[in-house]
């Protein structure tokens, strides 16, 4: 990797309700680049973001963000660190009782004591960046899915963070909205010098914008590298995921008892 790492995960082990979700994950996320974390549904990609954000604590291992060990941080230091992070949730997670304008203004009002006209200028600037300056007075219930995500994106960059995490930004979007989001993510990264972490299972879109990608399955990283390196990756599982083949090392069938015994075809079942 060319640039230094902004986030470093070392031997992270995490399990929830008895199930081991990460079993020794080690990963470097470079500063100022877009990193895509891909993998099949249910492999804990969102969990990884929550670990980085300090909302969950790993069983063991260290998570360094901007030189701080997140799981060890005290409450106050953690909240200070989070002001440098933005996160775009899958559902957008706009506050439903506030208008689009107030949603974007929320982090500014809480964390700064700027005068009202300055807050207004910043909010309109951020809304302009996502192309929704005209939608400032709409309530979240009046926004379409794609617009909701764009307002949420404006909100997560309101405080000019160093890091922004996208949780499934493309899921359930129509092609135009998806194209808009791809463009926004790329533009924000280049214009603001953000470190971006993108969690997704939409392979073509993710690979088209990321500088670096890794694929997680079964609690391990099964492949990482630049998009070009990944396409040439020797592992069959990586190829199966990238090309979306229905059967392969990840079987089509959920583990089940022998088919014959379920349908009572073999002796002794009756």
């Amino acid at each position: 990797m060319a640039s230094e790492a902004y986030i470093t995960l070392t031997d992270v082990v995490f399990s929830r309700s008895g199930r081991r979700i990460f079993d020794g994950v080690t990963l470097d996320i470079p500063r100022g680049k877009i990193t895509a974390i891909m993998g099949p549904s249910g492999t804990g990609k969102t969990t990884l973001l929550r670990l980085i954000g300090g909302q969950l604590k790993p069983d063991s291992g260290t998570i360094m963000v901007a030189g701080e060990n997140v799981p060890r941080l005290r409450r106050k230091a953690l909240y200070t660190l989070r002001e440098k992070m933005g996160m775009l949730f899958q559902s957008g997670a706009l506050f439903t009782d506030l208008s689009a304008f107030e949603n974007v203004a929320f982090p500014l009002r809480v964390h700064t004591s700027l005068p009202e006209d300055m807050i207004r200028d910043i909010v309109l600037m951020k809304l302009e960046a996502v192309g929704l300056r005209g939608a400032r007075d709409l309530m979240p219930s009046e926004l379409s899915g794609g617009m909701t995500r764009r307002v949420a994106l404006a909100r997560s960059i309101a405080l000019d963070p160093e890091l922004i995490m996208y949780d499934e930004p493309f899921a359930g979007q129509d092609p135009i909205a998806m194209g808009v989001l791809v463009k926004l993510i790329r533009d924000l990264n280049s214009s603001m010098g953000l470190t971006s972490v993108l969690v997704s299972h939409d392979v073509p879109e993710s690979l088209s914008i990321c500088h670096y990608a890794c694929i997680i399955a079964d609690g391990h990283i099964i492949g990482e590298g630049t998009p070009a390196e990944l396409r040439q990756h020797p592992s069959e599982r990586v190829q199966q995921f990238l090309q979306g083949q229905p059967d392969g090392p990840v079987p089509f069938n959920y583990p089940a008892p022998d088919a014959g015994s379920d349908w009572g075809l073999t002796g002794g079942a009756r």
């Binding site: 989070r82 992070m85 506050f95």
Partner: peptide, 9 residues
Amino acid sequence: QLSSMEMMG
């Protein structure tokens, strides 16, 4: 919404 608030510090 609660999670996002937490992530906003």
